[in-house]
């Protein structure tokens, strides 16, 4: 841990992208589970995710990055699913 003499005045973070080192996934109490058979690849989950925790490879949703997902459930709420069945469901952690 840094001493006070080593800090930047004003608490300015001089390094870009350093929040990648702050893994917020440990805050999660509910985790999103992807159900590929109900997914229409609309990417609404990717668009709405506040933590960029939806993995997209070659334009396709491939699952979640649980290092950063806080379990807010916005993706599951926005997911249109297929024929009334959600492609993202929230489940309690540790179940």
């Amino acid at each position: 841990m840094k001493k006070w003499t080593e800090l930047v005045p004003g608490a300015v973070v001089l390094e870009a992208g350093s929040s990648a080192r702050f893994k917020t996934g440990s805050w999660r109490t509910f985790r999103p589970r992807w159900v590929p058979e109900n997914c229409i690849q609309c990417l609404m989950c990717w668009l709405y995710c506040p933590d960029m925790a939806v993995n997209v490879v070659d334009g396709k949703m491939t699952g979640f990055n649980y290092d950063y997902c806080k379990g807010c459930g916005v993706c599951a709420k926005e997911c249109p699913g297929k024929q009334g069945k959600k492609a993202i469901v929230m489940e309690p952690e540790g179940k």
């Binding site: 841990m1 840094k2 001493k3 006070w4 003499t5 800090l7 005045p9 004003g10 608490a11 300015v12 973070v13 001089l14 390094e15 870009a16 350093s18």
Partner: peptide, 25 residues
């Protein structure tokens, strides 16, 4: 050219040290 952030969240681990620095300044 040098992106940076103002106003980060500083919790129990460093807030006390930042206030010590403010006192020093």
């Amino acid at each position: 050219e040098h992106p940076k952030s103002f106003g980060p969240l500083i919790l129990t681990d460093l807030y006390h040290e930042y206030k010590r620095l403010q006192h020093e300044i």
